[in-house]
Design a protein around this nucleic acid. Sequence first.
DNA 1: GCGTCCAGGTCTACC
DNA 2: GGTAGACCTGGACGC
Length: 319
Amino acid sequence: MVELTRAFSFSLKPTPPYNFELTVRKPAGWDLFTPFEIYQDGVLSTALHVGDMLVGLRLSSMGTADRPEVRAKLFTERELEPTQKRLAKQSVSRMLGAEDDLAEFYAVARRDPILRHTLEDLSGMHDTYSDGVFGPALLAICLQMAPLKRSEAMMRSIIEIYGEVAEFDGKRVSVWPLPKRMAALEPVELARTCRLGYRAKRIVELANFLVDRGFPDMGELAKLPPEDAKRRLMELPGIGDYSADIINPRSGFPIDVWSVDVFGKLFYGREPKNARAAVERVKAEGVRRWGEWSWMAFFYIAQDLRNLSKKLGVRLRLQ
DNA sequence: GCGTCCAGGTCTACC
DNA sequence: GGTAGACCTGGACGC
């Protein structure tokens, strides 16, 4: 456990519309940074690594979706220099999607027969990002070839056994481990302790790749053309087309055997008979329809399945 | 209770 | 360059 006793506060003025609650607590249950974060009375207590530094974060909203203001208190083990504080504030702003302008996507969505329904429910929901690729990559690997329940169990085990616990503001929050911690493990041990099966070997190889060769963080990846960022991500051990689409910031259309049913039904009115065989076809149709906004379309639809089922009169498989 | 199937993919050997 | 087959595990399902 790491006690984070130093703190500084700041506020962010995100680009409106910005709905704080929808952004930090996604309707489909996607975590902001860790499954162990705590949301109570409009306040999110979470923790993460910024670079190699463990930080705690207390987030709340002081504004509205149209005039947003996010109050943040950042906790660290040691006092930060002014420059470090400025960089940390920039990182938090980027990770919360505070600088992303939704206007162009919303213009596309309002004209789209499927997406327009999601705007009624999710207006102001921004996509969020982690700092490094290791956490999202672990998530993607745990999602491979497993029911969601089992994927969640694997992720929780990794964090509980090998992650760090941040203690700050009277709370304890467990976070994803850093690559250097996982690189030192024996795959057999990791597989046994976290019930990871063949994924353990891939995770250790991935950790060693990141430690030995380095890799751009999410901010650097976001500056690359999306196809270049995806190519870089697919160089990582255990990361293929689907996983790269999950990790790639602001890009991708990650169709798998679950989402192929959902989007098959939305596009063609029925679930494909052979889900695996239909992945490429459904993915191509999504990219054809939504182009550069494919990821945002996927993101908004995935968060709104229950409402879309009612509004469109189709039965969509929930997550 | 037991056997079989398959799930929010990726990698490798083989052609 | 394309593709079948292997890969951990555990819940669901049929019998």
